[in-house]
Simulated assay, not measured.
Amino acid sequence: MSWSVGQVSGFAGVTVRTLHYYDRSGLLSPSERSPAGYRLYNAADLARLQQILFYRELGFPLDEIADILADPQATVLDHLLARRDALTEQITRLQKLVDVAERAIEVQRTGIELSPEERFEVFGDVVFDLSYAADAHLKWGEREGHQESMARAAAHTKEDWRQLMAEAAVWRRRLLAAFDEGRAADHPEVLDLAEEHRQHITRWFTPCPPEMHCRIADDYEADARAFALVVPPAEQRPGLAGYLRSAICANAERQSSTGGEVAR
C-alpha cells in the first residue's frame, strides 16, 4: 500500500512543503511513483518519517537526524545522550528565566522588592497571595490611591518593611486581645485600634480616608486572601474579619460625627 504526498501531509501533521524539502535534501525520498509520476510513500517511508519527526520533536537539527538514520545502531545512543544533556541545560536556563519572570510579576503585583529570603525574614507567616494581588490590581489599579500605594511599597527598604511589620504585629496582638476578651466592635478601645490601622496605611502606603478604609475592610471580610495580609491564618479566629470590618466602619462614622473626614 502507498500514499500520496497530500495524504501523508494530512495524517502526519506536516506540510507538503516540508515533505518536498525532506525529499530534496535526501532525508526522506518517496520510494515509489504512481503511473502518472507522482511521489508515493510506502510503509517503510512512513516509519522513517516517524523517526524524523521524533528526533525533530527532541530538537535535533536535520543534518544530525540524517547521521542518526544513516547508522542508527552506531550513533543513536550517543546522540540521544548528548541531546539529553543539552535539554537539561536548556531546562535549567529556562527555569532561571521563569524565576526571573515570576519575581518581576511578584514585584509588579505586590510592589515589594525583596528577595524570597528577605520576605520570609521580614513577613514570617503573613501571606502575600499573588492571585489576590492580581485581582486587587484589576479592581483598584486605576485608582490613584492604589497606584501610590504600589509606588511607595516598591520604594520601601528592607528596614522600612521590618519596622512597619513590627508595628503591625504589635497592633495585631492588641486586636486579638480585644476580640478574645469580648470587647464590642464599637468599644472606644477597639475604635482606636481601627483608627491606628487607618493611620498605619496612610503612613506607609497611601492616604486612607475613612470611606476608603471601609472598602478595604469589606475585602477583609469577603476575601480570606485579603484578611491574611492583616492576620496570618494561624492567628485568625472565627468572626474576626467581620469584627474588624465592623470596628473600621464604626470608626469611620465616629470620624464623621466628630468633624473628621467624611465616611462613606
Rank of each mutant, 00 (worst) to 15 (best):
31 S>K: 12
30 P>G: 03
16 V>W: 01
21 Y>H: 15
57 E>N: 11
61 P>R: 07
50 Q>M: 09
19 L>Y: 01
14 V>F: 10
7 Q>E: 15
37 G>L: 05
18 T>W: 01
78 D>N: 13
7 Q>R: 12
41 Y>I: 06
28 L>P: 02
10 G>I: 08
21 Y>A: 09
61 P>G: 07
49 L>S: 08
32 E>Y: 04
67 D>I: 00
38 Y>E: 09
13 G>F: 13
7 Q>C: 08
17 R>S: 09
15 T>R: 04
53 L>S: 03
20 H>C: 07
35 P>T: 14
38 Y>M: 08
56 R>A: 05
29 S>Q: 15
47 A>H: 11
77 L>T: 11
15 T>Q: 02
44 A>Q: 00
80 L>T: 14
52 I>P: 06
23 D>M: 00
28 L>S: 01
62 L>A: 14
80 L>V: 14
48 R>T: 15
71 D>K: 12
58 L>H: 12
29 S>T: 11
43 A>Q: 12
66 A>P: 10
65 I>W: 08
14 V>Q: 05
80 L>D: 12
59 G>S: 10
57 E>Y: 12
7 Q>P: 02
44 A>W: 02
56 R>V: 08
23 D>G: 00
71 D>Q: 11
72 P>F: 11
31 S>G: 11
16 V>L: 02
35 P>I: 09
52 I>A: 10
30 P>T: 01
31 S>Y: 07
53 L>G: 03
15 T>P: 07
